[in-house]
Computed example of a mutant assay.
Amino acid sequence: MNTVYIKNLAIGEGKPKICIPICGKTKADILNEAENILKLPADIIEWRADWYEEIFDPAAVGDSLAALRAVIGEMPLLFTFRSVQEGGEKGISPQKYMELAQLVCESGMIDALDVELFMDSKINPMIVDMAHQHQIVIIASNHDFRKTPEKDELTRRMILMDEMGADILKVAVMPKSKTDVLELLSATEEMGRLYTEKPVITMSMGPMGLISRLAGEVFGSVLTFGAGEKASAPGQISARQLEMVLNTIHDNMGGEL
C-alpha cells in the first residue's frame, strides 16, 4: 500500500488514524467543537460543512474556515460537504458543489477534500485536478445509508474512485445482517490485495457494523471516525474509546498482518 501524506500525517502506515468530525451549525459552534477536539486523540479533523448554516455564503465560509484554521493550527483538516442523497444535511447542485470546492481549495486553509463519487461525472475530474494543483489530497467517497451492496459492486465503486484520480478511496454502507458486515470487510481486504495500492477507508455503519470501525488494521482500512461532541454517522463511538481499541489491536498484532 502506498502512503499518502496529509500534512505530516502518514495515511497507510501503522494503525488506522482517527478522524473527528465538526458538525457545528454556527461559527461559534464550529470553533468550540474544534477547541474540544484538540483535547481528544484526533489525528485529523473533518469539517462537515453541510451542517453549517451559512455554507452557501462564500464570505462566511472563508471567514469561518480562517478562524477554524487559527484554532487548530497545524492539525490536518479535511473539508467535507456531504450531500443529502448520501446522508448529509443539505442538498446542493453540482455547480454549487464545484464552486464550494474551488473556494476552499483556493483558501489555502484545507489539507484534504472529500469528493463524492456520484456527485457529477463531469465536474469531479475538474475538482480533482484543481485540488491537486493546490497540493490538496482527494478522498473520494460513497455512502449508502439503506443497504450494503454486494462485494463486487463495492470493489467496482472503489475502482472508479481510483480511476478518477482520487488519492484515498472511501466507502460507507449500512448493514442489514452480519453477512453484510462480512461483505464489506471482504471487499476491503480484496481491494487492497488485488486492485489498488492506494489507501482505502471503509466502514459498515450502525451498531452491527461497529467491528468494521475497529478492525481496520486487520482488513486494510486506514482511517476511522470517532465522535467528539456529536457523531456524524450511525455507529461512531467516542474517540477515546476508539483509541484504546485501536492501540490494543495494534500492540498485539506483532507486525504479522
Rank of each mutant, 00 (worst) to 15 (best):
L65S: 13
W51N: 13
K90P: 07
R48A: 00
D57S: 12
A28R: 08
R82H: 09
I55Q: 10
D63P: 03
S93P: 06
A49E: 02
A67G: 09
T26H: 04
R48Y: 00
I55T: 07
F79L: 03
D57K: 10
A60M: 11
A28C: 00
W51E: 03
D63S: 15
F56D: 12
I30H: 03
E53Q: 12
L38G: 05
P41D: 05
D43I: 07
S93D: 06
A28W: 02
T80W: 10
R69H: 06
W51H: 15
E46G: 01
T80C: 09
V71H: 09
M75D: 13
E46K: 00
E53H: 08
G91D: 13
G73S: 08
S64C: 15
E33W: 05
G73E: 13
A49D: 02
E74V: 10
L78F: 05
W51V: 01
D29E: 07
I72R: 12
G87A: 04
V84L: 13
I55H: 05
S83D: 08
R69N: 07
M75V: 13
A59L: 10
A28Y: 04
A66W: 00
F56W: 10
G73I: 06
E53C: 00
D43Q: 05
R69D: 12
E53G: 02
F81K: 04
Q85W: 12
K27W: 03
V61P: 07
P58K: 10
L31R: 06
F79M: 02
K39T: 12
F56P: 10
A67S: 14
Q85G: 09
F56A: 05
A66Q: 14
V84C: 02
L65P: 10
K90M: 13
F81W: 05
S93M: 06
E74Q: 14
F81T: 01
V71G: 10
L68R: 06
T26C: 02
E53T: 08
V84E: 14
G88V: 08
G73P: 09
N36C: 04
G73W: 13
R82N: 07
L65V: 11
W47P: 07
G73H: 08
G88L: 09
I44C: 13
W47Q: 11
A67I: 02
E35D: 03
E33L: 04
L40R: 04
L78W: 03
G91S: 14
V84A: 14
I44Y: 11
R48C: 01
E54R: 11
E54H: 15
A34M: 11
K27S: 10
E53A: 10
E54N: 15
W47V: 11
I92N: 07
T26F: 03
K90L: 15
P94S: 01
L38V: 05
L65I: 12
I72L: 12
G73N: 07
L38T: 00
N32S: 13
K90S: 11
I37Y: 12
E74P: 14
L68T: 07
L40G: 01
S93I: 00
F79H: 06
E46Y: 01
I55V: 15
